[in-house]
Nucleic acid binder design. Structure first.
Lengths: 122, 122
DNA sequence: TGAATACTGAACCATATAGTTCACTATCTA
DNA sequence: TAGATAGTGAACTATATGGTTCAGTATTCA
């Protein structure tokens, strides 16, 4: 890899990547209603314990989930940071999309203007 | 792979995955201010044309960017769907996080209650 | 104490991603 | 028409992801 221009926000990298998997979105959805052990999540999502452990680790690294082990069971709950930064990025950029489509009217106006210009210069 | 429980929303898979890369978030940011050719994006993000082409393809597949080739230049602009579904998912689930932390007060209350109970039963 | 439960970690597999180079086509422009 | 420009596509590399199995450790319960 060459040197990278640092636009990176590792936090957003991690959380958007975490959200890009349907199982993990499902886990967040579930934890929003009740805390859960790895085992119960693995059952719900029909997956091995090990597989579920990995998904939870990804969510944890992204700050979306917190876990605590008591005795032999590790309980998973929603994390502290909670989608705030992600919501902020999305909202900020959603405005750009909207602005762009407001601009459509503008473009249409410009096209009309061009046509008029051509007609005038003929 | 075993059979998968269908929680999947391929659209969200694609768009969140697209957003998980800093370069691609940068591209969206840039296109929010001005349309751009592959070449100009490649220069701005210090990357080969081929590399940039791939990023744009990922964004296009996710519906976040539209492109049109006129002559030899392909112009990229923000797409139509524009982060609406993503914003919706995030907002819906952000509420779950908030609810969870409202519940913290509840937990603290319960702990207090337990202490009181212990004190009473001693 | 011994069996069952809950998790953990290493190792493996198939596929995807982020980037490259190189060879090519298509379009401008002088 | 020749050369420069803009993009495309195939092939390659290195690393990550999503899943598995298998062999462990730590806890709980009978």
């Amino acid at each position: 890899m060459n040197y990278m221009v640092q636009y990176s926000s590792p936090a957003l990298d991690l959380s958007f990547a975490a959200l890009s998997d349907a199982t993990r979105r499902g886990i967040i959805d579930h934890l929003g209603r009740a805390d859960a052990s790895i085992t119960s999540l693995a059952e719900k999502f029909r997956m091995t314990l090990t597989g579920m452990k990995k998904h939870v680790a990804v969510l944890e690294r992204a700050g979306l989930v917190m876990t605590e082990k008591v005795g032999r069971v590790r309980t998973c709950k929603l994390g502290q940071g909670g989608l705030a930064a992600e919501a902020q990025w999305i909202e900020a950029h959603r405005k750009l999309f909207e602005a762009r489509f407001d601009a459509l009217d503008q473009v249409i106006l410009e096209m009309k203007q061009e046509q008029d210009d051509e007609r005038t210069s003929e």
